[in-house]
Write a protein that binds this DNA or RNA. Structure first.
Lengths: 126, 126
DNA sequence: CCGTCAGTACGAGTCAAGTCGAACTTAGCA
DNA sequence: TGCTAAGTTCGACTTGACTCGTACTGACGG
């Protein structure tokens, strides 16, 4: 009914998700704050639109930033409740918490999916 | 069709709005950033839900903050494109740009209207 | 004309966020 | 056992928000 993003199938035996706020404790101001940056909007939008299979490691995005900066942003997204992260060996993969976000903030992910970076922006992505 | 908030009627001969970004230049990241604070969410939500007549002066909210702080936040909301402000004599009244926001970011205002301050928050409003 | 009242402008202090380099941790693999 | 690669942690720096006091502006009423 509402915006239909793939709710990714979860094969059994997944690694436990890293610490994240439960659905009931998602706060709108935190989520909006986490999404109020072009870089993080890019990350979430690409997870929504280009996720063909399952979740994705940090380097899948090919973002041109030092590793420590990416850690910072992925952590911010997870701690706000926007993404879920799981550890696969060395990789830490992210996915959007589509079900949770649709339940608590219906319509929000559609806005993120429709977003496009500012025309004159000096490619924060790639 | 989408969330139906009152689009306030505009009597003729209104004072010109203060400078604001045009509809086409509203940026999601700016709008989300402006809304990522409990105080400003309170302001916008009350404008949406408790506006019985027309727009409202700053002191209508009865926010317990110094005047200069309020100026700061009302200006932030206007510059992000969330609110429109007009000068009526001494008063500067605010309204939410319902039509513009619904056109560019459908569903966003519904999320704001449904928001409630954190239970344990030490009353940033009143 | 002078006070009052709504709100702005300015400036300073504080604090959190973003940015990044460098060192560390750990899985997998030779 | 030792290398490599993915990502974290730490600390330092910079930048920008938020907060607020004080001084200012400009409209209105006597």
């Amino acid at each position: 009914m509402s915006a239909a993003f793939k709710v990714l199938p979860e094969p059994p035996g997944l690694p436990e998700p890293l610490p994240e706020p439960p659905v009931g404790e998602l706060r709108l101001e935190e989520v909006l704050g986490a999404l109020s940056s072009p870089l993080r909007l890019t990350i979430v939008r690409r997870l929504l639109l280009e996720s063909e299979e399952f979740d994705h490691s940090c380097q899948w995005f090919g973002l041109d930033r030092p590793k420590s900066s990416l850690t910072h942003h992925f952590k911010a997204l997870r701690e706000a409740g926007v993404t879920r992260q799981r550890q696969y060996g060395l990789e830490r993969r992210s996915q959007v918490r589509v079900e949770d976000l649709n339940a608590r903030f219906p319509g929000l992910l559609a806005l993120v999916a429709a977003w496009t970076p500012e025309p004159g922006a000096l490619s924060p992505e790639l």
